[in-house]
């Protein structure tokens, strides 16, 4: 592996270490939330940015994994590998089910079917009170642990979320560069030709959805431990739509833009929300402006600026 390929993850780790050392509890939990939701948005970018599959049900993958981990934690304790394993398994399983339902039809139908599927998962989480706590959600979860080490403090959660985000970014990059990732781009660009090359659209898209489900599931499995709470909002379609907003603000197809967009959105929600009731208006305006002026998102706008700066 060359030095330059290691440089970026190294810089990421160094930045994380610096932030972990310097930030306070509130900021660390907030950053952990950004990194976890950002990882889910990253997995959505695989579908939208590379497969052209606009899923309005992505929160179902993330949220069901969060519920699965939270429920398991109440009975088994919150061991990190167990939580990750359960989240990934749940995310993949729900994605498989979702794929069987939504990948049969064209773009608009896919959107609606994904929305319906997501809302069905929400209905289950909302109404199955004995298991999911209904509208109240689940509270009083045990803190995350790894063997003898407790990982429930803000710093550990932030580091875990950061490692997961970096790892997912690496997985996403490798996916996009792999034959499977290329094939996914092919199904977006020219579905008919892909069939004429011997690819089955369903096989390509289904595999991509499984990968996205596993990634969203991993992120979801840690999410309840940030605030020791999981509620039905984490499955609702408005979170799916919010994830799309985050992705577009950050930049569809840029991978790391997913984290940028998530950070911008959640920062607006937290800081503008503290200052005015109209933060949704701000988010909406920012989103519409992005779509109108910079449809490639902040990530590519940022890159373009730095490139302009470099070349004389």
């Amino acid at each position: 592996m060359s030095l330059s390929r290691l440089a970026l993850p190294m810089a990421g780790l160094a930045a994380m270490a610096a932030v972990a050392a310097l930030s306070g509890d509130f900021q660390l939990r907030f950053l952990a939330e950004i990194l976890l939701i950002g990882t889910a948005v990253l997995s959505l970018d695989l579908l939208i940015g590379f497969g052209g599959l606009i899923s309005l049900g992505h929160a179902a993958l993330f949220g069901s994994a969060a519920y699965a981990a939270a429920i398991a934690a109440q009975h088994l304790g919150a061991s990190l590998p167990v939580m990750l394993g359960i989240g990934i398994a749940m995310g993949t399983a729900v994605a498989a089910l979702m794929g069987l339902v939504i990948l049969r039809a064209g773009s608009l139908f896919l959107l609606i079917l994904a929305l319906l599927f997501g809302q069905i998962v929400w209905e289950i989480c909302f109404h199955w009170r004995e298991v999911t706590g209904g509208a109240d959600g689940l509270r009083g979860l045990p803190p995350l642990s790894l063997g003898p080490w407790a990982l429930g403090d803000a710093r550990s959660l932030f580091v875990l979320a950061g490692l997961l985000a970096l790892g997912s970014l690496g997985v996403a990059r490798s996916f996009v560069a792999s034959p499977l990732g290329r094939a996914l781009i092919g199904t977006r660009e020219q579905p008919i030709r892909m069939q004429a090359l011997g690819y089955t659209l369903f096989s390509v898209r289904f595999r991509a959805l499984l990968v996205a489900g596993a990634m969203a599931g991993a992120a979801g499995s840690l999410y309840p431990f940030v605030n020791l709470y999981v509620g039905p909002q984490s499955v609702h379609w408005t979170l799916s739509a919010t994830m799309i907003i985050m992705l577009v603000i950050g930049g569809v197809g840029s991978l790391w833009g997913a984290f940028l967009g998530t950070a911008v959105y959640l920062a607006l929600q937290t800081y503008v929300g503290a200052w005015t009731d109209r933060w949704q208006l701000c988010v909406g305006l920012l989103f519409v402006l992005t779509v109108l002026v910079m449809p490639q998102g902040l990530a590519s706008g940022f890159l373009r600026l730095t490139r302009k700066g470099r070349t004389p």
């Binding site: 606009i54 959107l111 907003i245 909406g284 519409v288």
Partner: peptide, 22 residues
Amino acid sequence: PHLMQVLLTYGLSVIFADLMRW
């Protein structure tokens, strides 16, 4: 493409929703 239409109009609906709440 549908993706861009979906994004634009969903964004507008977020704006209108907040304006009407206001």
